[in-house]
């Protein structure tokens, strides 16, 4: 059994629900479950992570069982089932990026942020983790930051410092 964080019930805004309605229209009648992945992305962008009450609400909206949502959310790596920092730095740790120094970049981020992979900094701003190939191998090392998954390529220790400092000031 996974550890489940205690969470408050969530409310979906009418703007969010309007987006849901728009997405569901893409699929044939009765195939609304297809909207599950895009909907979970919207939920995570709104709340910062994918909590059980939010998943239950999505299940209700799509008229499917909650377990069907849990199964999907836990299969894919992009849905955070635990709260994370405001900015999650996801660094590619796969072969080609390692050839050009991805491991050093991860060590540097760990030192700079002072937290281990997956943890949240004290100010709640940052988490980091290694992820698999981001399809930018020729421009490595690379990292991305959600919810819009902006890419930062050809990373150096200096450019990472700069990035983190800029985000802190935001």
């Amino acid at each position: 059994m996974l550890k489940v964080e205690e969470t408050q019930p969530v409310e979906f805004s009418s703007a969010l629900l309007a987006k849901f309605d728009e997405i569901v229209k893409r699929y044939p009648e009765g195939k609304q479950k297809s909207a599950l992945l895009p909907l979970l992305h919207l939920v995570q962008a709104e709340f910062g992570w994918t909590s059980v009450p939010a998943m239950d609400k999505v299940a209700e909206y799509l008229n499917i069982q909650p377990i069907e949502v849990y199964e999907v959310a836990s299969f894919y790596t992009m849905y955070f089932l635990q709260p994370k920092g405001k900015y999650v730095l996801e660094v590619c740790r796969t072969g080609p990026c390692c050839l050009v120094g991805a491991e050093k970049i991860m060590d540097h981020i760990e030192k700079k942020l002072g937290v281990k992979e997956g943890e949240v900094t004290e100010d709640g701003l940052f988490s980091w983790r290694g992820v698999e190939c981001l399809a930018a191998c020729g421009f490595g090392p690379v990292l991305q930051i959600g919810p819009e998954y902006t890419f930062y390529e050809n990373l150096t220790e200096q450019s990472v410092d700069q990035l983190i400092d800029d985000l802190r000031k935001k």
Binding site: M1, V52, E68
Partner: peptide, 21 residues
């Protein structure tokens, strides 16, 4: 008539679970 348990996670971390109690 209603499934409340399923397969969570993936690969060799997959597990049968209800996720919540």
């Amino acid at each position: 008539n209603k499934r409340v348990h399923g397969i969570l996670n993936r690969g060799d971390h997959s597990e049968i679970s209800t996720y919540i109690q």
